[in-house]
Amino acid sequence: MAVSLLAQARNPIIRWEWIIEEWHQIQSAIFEHLRLTVLAMLLGLVVSAGLAAIALRYRWTLTPITATTSLIYTLPSVALFALLAPVFGNLSLYTAVLPLAGYTLLILVTNIVAGFQAVPPSVRDAAEGMGFGPARRIWTVDLPLALPFIVTGIRIATVSTVGMVTVAAIIGQGGLGRLIFSGLRRAFWTPMTVGASLSIILALLLDALILGVGVLLTPWARRRRATS
């Protein structure tokens, strides 16, 4: 038994045949992972947009909104999943998506607010001078200018959500975390390695994708862009 666990012949860090044999399982795990990430991000974006709008309209609300979203951000995800389980049913989709969306709020709200605040007042005045109403100004002037900040926020939030979704396997949602836990319960390394690596790769791919979309949406910023 003195043999190192990692050197065991039948239990190496990664057993390639397993990946081939269980490809269907891996595939559906990736799909599930994406689905949870996208749902959480969409919900997070909608709520954040609302909160950011309130914070921009009524400046005094910014502090309590930031404080609340920061607090949510610090709650341990395992515990939050466990807490919502009795409310929505142990294995409900809501139980997974709500906390995941909650964790995106701090980053998204902060970035949306920062984006709109960064719009130079002179530009805003010019738009108003040209006879733009508030709605039109926000859509055609403020929003495009705020977009780089918002896209950065979405990138950060998406990447951390991908990492967080692995934890949702605790409450029986699929995703790559399911592979990690299934390996953990059996002390079988391959699914854990596959699950963890794929979650990192997925995060990087989504990050690159959103970055690309952001660049396409803001062609004028390409030359001025420094770092994210």
Partner: peptide, 17 residues
């Protein structure tokens, strides 16, 4: 054995109420 497998997630949404 996998022909009977389907996604669990969405179905769980329905019966809550």
């Amino acid at each position: 054995p996998h022909s009977t497998r389907r996604r669990a997630g969405l179905r769980l949404l329905v019966p809550i109420l």
